[in-house]
């Protein structure tokens, strides 16, 4: 890092007040954001009686793993977890293939009618058919209540297409493409041998964006899926956290315990932690890719 301009000169009293204010402001923001997160994690590890009587403020009180035990015994949660994993992996793979297949040709000057094709994609960001026409289409295609309904309707995000296309334009020089064309390299070959290896960073960013999107979404499952064994994790979570419907088979398991300790209240905290864990665990390691993705997107605005 080069010297920050501030180091060039002695700071005035006004600037010192400003510095203190900046740090104070950031510290307050930090606490406001972090406190609910810490509280939820602490409550999930605390004894139910301590949470209900309001003894938990920051750290776990009378630590216990009962809540987590109940979560991992719940068959619905486990099956939801597996389904979500499938939708995320399969969905993201298709997303990546489609995004590259759209972004690569649209980044080449040689594609006659490029602006027209781009306009066809961009217009869908401004205007859409809406909920019912889309639902009727998915129904008429026979996708309702199939795993495809979670993948095909969201096979491509135009926003991510724009970011990837910008990246291709910036990193693959026209000269390289022209030279390869002259040497008789076909477009298929160029895409597979040159463009893809060069685009590993953007593919990582896209995989993360799409992956998190699949993992966290619930609305498509709500409208397209009926069978209990196809439901993703978020729908199961909605039943437990928002609609207050704990699976009856699960209730029987610890009904005795629950009467004794009010376990159900704690299970919710444990459910929240377990459901967010996969994303939050990898997040510190991939954060810089997310930031990079936003920056690439910001170039184009």
């Amino acid at each position: 890092m080069e010297a920050h301009p501030n180091r060039l000169m002695k700071e005035s009293p006004g600037d010192r007040i400003f510095n203190v204010a900046t740090y104070l402001y950031l510290a307050i923001v930090f606490v406001l954001v972090a406190y609910p997160l810490i509280y939820v994690v602490s409550a999930s590890f605390s004894a139910p009686s301590a949470v209900i009587s309001g003894k938990v403020w920051l750290w776990p009180v009378e630590p216990t793993l009962n809540g987590y035990e109940a979560v991992f015994k719940n068959k619905q949660l486990v099956s939801g977890f597996a389904n979500s994993l499938f939708y995320m992996v399969a969905g993201t793979l298709i997303n990546l293939v489609m995004t590259v297949m759209a972004a690569f040709p649209l980044s080449r000057k040689e594609l006659f009618g490029r602006n027209l094709f781009m306009a066809i994609f961009l217009f869908t960001m401004l205007f859409s058919g809406g909920l019912i026409p889309t639902f009727l289409l998915v129904r008429d295609l026979g996708l309702l209540d199939t795993r495809w309904a979670m993948i095909l309707p969201v096979a491509l995000s135009v926003w991510n297409l724009i970011i990837t296309r910008t990246y291709f334009q910036a990193t693959i020089p026209d000269e390289l493409y022209e030279a390869a064309s002259m040497d008789g390299c076909t477009d298929f070959r160029f895409l597979l041998r040159m463009a893809l290896p060069l685009s590993a960073p953007i593919l990582a960013v896209m995989a993360l964006y799409y992956g998190v999107g699949h993992w966290n979404s619930y609305f498509n499952a709500l409208i397209y899926l009926k069978s209990p064994d196809l439901q993703p994790l978020q729908i199961i979570l909605r039943n437990i956290l928002v609609l207050n419907q704990l699976d009856p088979t699960m209730m029987q398991d610890f009904e005795v315990l629950q009467r004794k300790q009010g376990l159900a209240d704690i299970v919710k905290y444990a459910v929240i932690v377990v459901a967010s864990l996969p994303v939050l665990l990898i997040y510190p390691f991939v954060q810089k890719y997310f930031v990079r993705g936003i920056m690439i997107g910001a170039i184009k605005g």
Partner: peptide, 19 residues
Amino acid sequence: VTYAPYFISTVVLVGMLMQ
């Protein structure tokens, strides 16, 4: 830390809120 809540799903966020 300020970026982290962005990755909490809508369902979990509302669940946290209700708790």
